[in-house]
Design a protein around this nucleic acid. Structure first.
Lengths: 409, 409
DNA sequence: CGAGGTTAAATCACGTCATTAATTAAGCCC
DNA sequence: GGGCTTAATTAATGACGTGATTTAACCTCG
């Protein structure tokens, strides 16, 4: 395809028009249900006739169902409509450091089944992970009593960069993965539609759809664990960049020539605010896992023990600087602090973090941003991953159960 | 309007369909002319019948004109089509530190008139600037012999943040401007449609449309002068953020607690690579302007005099770090280094800058990015500003001369 | 209990769109 | 000047959303 100077455009037909209008209606109903045809008309701008036509088709397909009625003031009662949560199912997979989690949700995002497979943190071979995912998919389908053909798709959150080209390649440095064709490997054991994305991005999606990011068009979801990353949302969409590696906030430099980072560079934000780095600074009891150790550090600071308070003060400073960089560069309306360490640190240090961010941001940019804690825990990676097929479905991609059943037939 | 969880969507009708398809065709012809109807059909995907219909309308409106023919191989000759450069005119305005530049272009972006109004760098009062712009608009119209009703619009590049709300407000800290309603003030003296944007963004547009950024969907245009800023391009569009202040790259922190910056903070990139900062580091002859002084610094380094080489080596390091931050966060396919100081530094130091960027970027992200010098000089701010009304026109906004003539009638 | 009124929803007629198929136009060659 | 080739236009068709009209589903009142 010939290069484009500005946003890529493609010609449309009346079929596209219908698909897009139906999509407008579905998104509206999905996030605001139940509601009436008249409410849908107001919310979408479509005429009552169009709403009636589109809703009839959706009811015929089983995507939407009537859900009771509201009495009118002497006139015909209004019928309430809702998504049919049993129309189809989605699966979210979280490939974490210590376990692979697989969750099956219905269309209302109600969890129907969950399976966790523990992982040896020293053993992240591709073959192992692929097996665990396959096992998990089979297990949740069985547990939920759901046929594979009823699954709209599987979203998978993985560590590292997910390059979406002719073939999906995963570059997971912390796992030692280099250009792993994960989708192809997974397809060897399942026919379910697969959608693979970076775990920080799927966490970001979860906060945007169901958590602290709801309603924001421009946001950054910052995740702090052992490592540090971010999901950048612009115009309601995840910004991925040209090869889907955007969001490596943890490897932006805050002190040129500063502390060594595990990525091989120096002065990275992660070397100052990543949980592993903070604990290295403070020292920790041998054999203690990071989460316990960080909680202990926070307790020690609360009791005024040793250097704990000073270490946390420094951490809040660097974290604030990192957030200020995002504020100056992106101008988000909201910054959401998440990740297991981000939530722990944030609960205690949010005022200090905000102060540091204010000091390092331009006045005007800072004044139009809020800094908040995420509402969803680290286990929302799978939930966020499950939104990947939901989005395609709501956009009218050829993804309906009927379509998949026809394809299989 | 009710909050949206994901990208905002609105319903369309067949009239929107037509406008959008016509827009697809216009963009194609604008950047690839002259060409035939068949080429337009291939490039846009529209059927020959649709191309014929849309082109006929555009010819009737005077937007497009036939421009000769190409013999066929025994068949009907192909007619070449081109934009009618005299269909309408646009004006670009560059509000710089030492002058206000106003340029009038035809649709082919050929300059038809230009006026520069020198400014006392200590005198950036709003009233002065507004007067200069008004004078410039009148002057270029007179010089080009163009009637005001033939102007599609005026694009204006200004320093600082341009907040597009109910009212356009300009916050230009270096000018001492705080929430200046520039559009309203300008409208008191002209009926021309006005489009105001930050000057770094308009420079970015120029490089994307006509310069080093052509063909890129994800890019960052970095501008280095006394100050430092960037224009972020995602999916071919300028990323502005929630209140249009995105791109403040110069105020991201590269050394926490480092050098004082003129913004009031410490450790900003601008304090390390802005021309003023670099010259302060090295020292300069009293009374010498920055551009001359920086050129002298580069010369001194070439001759091995004093600390010149060391200062430039340090500058390349910090600049590379700043670029690495952009690479890690945005994953652009191209980084364009511009601004008067950026071009000066880049001519000599590009290899060192790239090395520093490589050292501070994640391997994969760096490998998919190129770092290049801008092809357009600082005077492209006005050219880029002039693309603002062109974009609206090509998108089919109610902006045609016929529309404006009807509105004025 | 049926008629009238009110309000919601469905259906119909219409205008607009793009595409496919058919037709016309503009050359060249013999 | 007729036949052929290729480009461009026009006609017929099917799809769309909307405004207008009709039908449906209640409630109230006599």
């Amino acid at each position: 395809m010939r290069e484009h100077v500005t946003p890529e455009r493609r010609r449309g037909t009346v079929r596209d028009l219908r698909r897009d209008n139906r999509s407008v209606l579905l998104w509206s109903l999905y996030f605001d249900q139940p509601c009436t045809r008249q409410e849908l008309s107001r919310a979408t701008g479509l005429s009552p006739a169009s709403v009636s036509n589109v809703v009839r088709e959706l009811i015929e397909e089983g995507v939407v169902a009537e859900a009771g009625a509201i009495d009118s003031d002497g006139g015909r009662p209004r019928v309430l409509l809702r998504m049919n949560s049993d129309y189809g199912y989605v699966i979210g997979v979280d490939v974490g450091e210590t376990r692979v989690r697989v969750e099956l949700f219905d269309l209302a995002m109600t969890e129907r089944a969950r399976v966790d497979s523990p992982l040896d943190p020293r053993e992240h071979g591709v073959t192992t992970i692929v097996e665990r995912i396959h096992e998990g998919l089979s297990a949740v389908l069985a547990d939920a009593g759901v046929d594979a053909s009823a699954v709209l798709g599987v979203g998978i959150g993985v560590p590292g960069v997910v390059e979406q080209g002719d073939e999906v390649l995963v570059h997971g440095q912390t796992y030692g993965w280099e250009a792993v064709p994960l989708e192809r490997l997974l397809r060897a054991g399942t026919d379910l539609p697969l959608h693979i994305d970076n775990g920080a991005n799927t966490m970001g999606r979860a906060e945007m759809w169901f958590g602290a990011g709801q309603g924001a068009q421009h946001a950054v979801v910052c995740l702090i664990g052992s490592g540090v990353g971010a999901s950048i949302i612009a115009h309601g969409r995840t910004h991925r960049g040209s090869t889907s590696s955007a969001g490596e906030w943890g490897h932006t430099t805050v002190v040129v020539g500063g502390r060594s980072c595990r990525c091989g560079s120096t002065g990275c934000l992660e070397a100052y605010v990543g949980a592993e780095a903070v604990l290295d600074r403070y020292g920790r009891t041998p054999g203690q896992d990071e989460e316990t150790a960080l909680a202990a550090l926070l307790d020690a600071a609360g009791r005024g023990e040793g250097d704990a308070a000073r270490v946390l003060e420094e951490t809040a400073l660097y974290l604030g600087v990192g957030l200020a960089d995002l504020i100056n560069l992106f101008n988000p309306e909201r910054i959401i602090l998440g990740g297991w360490a981000g939530l722990l640190l944030g609960e205690r240090l949010l005022p200090a973090i905000r102060d540091a961010a204010r000091s390092n941001s331009l006045k005007h940019a800072f004044s139009s941003t809020s800094i908040e804690l995420g509402k969803l825990g680290p286990e929302a990676v799978a939930l966020g991953a499950a939104t990947l097929p939901i989005e395609l479905f709501l956009n009218g991609a050829q993804l309906s159960v009927a379509d998949r059943r026809r394809s299989a037939g």
